[in-house]
Design a protein around this nucleic acid. Structure first.
Length: 192
DNA sequence: ATAACGATCCAG
DNA sequence: TGGATCGTTATG
C-alpha cells in the first residue's frame, strides 16, 4: 500500500502540501546506502508577498528553483555553516516551498550518527540544520527531483494523530502567520 | 566594492 | 545567552 508521492502532489497549494507531508517518509538513496525518516515538522514559505520567503526580493540566482515546477529540492546555505532542506511546491511560476524542519530517523541511523557526530537519536534530525547534516544534504542537491530514484517521499500509511499549527521559527517578519506545522505527538520535533 | 545579516546550533 | 562563520543581497 505504500507509494511514492507523485509530482502532482507537490503542485497543490503549499499549505495543503505542508500539512500533508507530516507523517510521510522522506527517503534518500546514495551509493553509501539508504536513509529515511518520518517528517514531523515543516514550514511553508509562499510567494513574493511573504516577508520571510526567499522570493520576497523576486527571482535571484539562489532562489530560481522556487520559480520552477513543484517536486524539486531547494537546499540553501545559511549562517556560514548550515544547510536547509526545502521541497518546491506549486506550479511553475509560483515561488513557494516547504522547509523540512524535523524528521524522526527510521533507516540509516548509524550513518546519521556518524554524520552528526552524535549518538542520541533525538538529536539527529530535530532541526533543519541537523537533518541536512544527518542526511548529508548540500546546496549541490538543489534542483534534484524529489520524485526520482535518489530522493523521494513515501506515503506508507502512517497517519499523525494531531497536527499543530504555530508561527514559523527563526524569522523576524511574518510571525503573524501560522505556517509551521508539526506532529503534536512526536518527540522528534525541534521544539514545542 | 563593501557591509549587514540570516528559515541555526552548541557550548558554557 | 553569545559566538561561530560565510554566501547572498542591497546599497553606494
Amino acid at each position: 500500500m505504500a507509494f511514492k508521492l507523485p509530482r502532482d502532489f507537490y503542485r497543490q497549494p503549499t499549505l495543503e502540501v505542508a500539512q500533508a507531508l507530516i507523517g510521510k517518509r522522506f527517503v534518500v538513496h546514495r551509493d553509501a546506502g539508504r536513509m529515511s525518516g518520518r517528517i514531523v515538522e515543516v514550514e511553508a514559505y509562499i510567494g513574493e508577498d511573504d516577508p520571510a520567503c526567499h522570493a520576497r526580493f523576486g527571482q535571484t540566482g539562489r532562489n530560481s528553483v522556487m520559480y520552477g515546477d513543484g517536486g524539486f529540492l531547494y537546499v540553501y546555505f545559511i549562517y556560514g555553516m548550515y544547510n536547509m532542506l526545502n521541497i518546491v511546491t506549486e506550479k511553475k511560476g509560483v515561488p513557494a516551498a516547504v522547509l523540512i524542519r524535523a524528521i524522526e530517523p527510521l533507516e540509516g541511523i548509524q550513518e546519521m550518527q556518524v554524520n552528526r557526530g552524535r549518538a542520541d537519536i533525538r538529536h539527529l534530525c530535530s532541526g533543519p540544520g541537523k537533518l541536512c547534516q544527518a542526511f548529508d544534504l548540500r546546496v549541490a542537491d538543489t534542483s534534484a527531483s524529489v520524485t526520482g530514484p535518489m530522493f523521494f517521499v513515501m506515503d506508507d500509511g502512517e497517519v499523525p494523530s494531531k497536527i499543530v499549527a504555530s508561527p514559523r521559527i527563526g524569522i523576524r517578519q511574518g510571525r503573524d502567520l501560522l505556517w509551521r506545522f508539526y506532529d503534536g505527538e512526536s518527540k522528534f520535533v525541534s521544539r514545542k
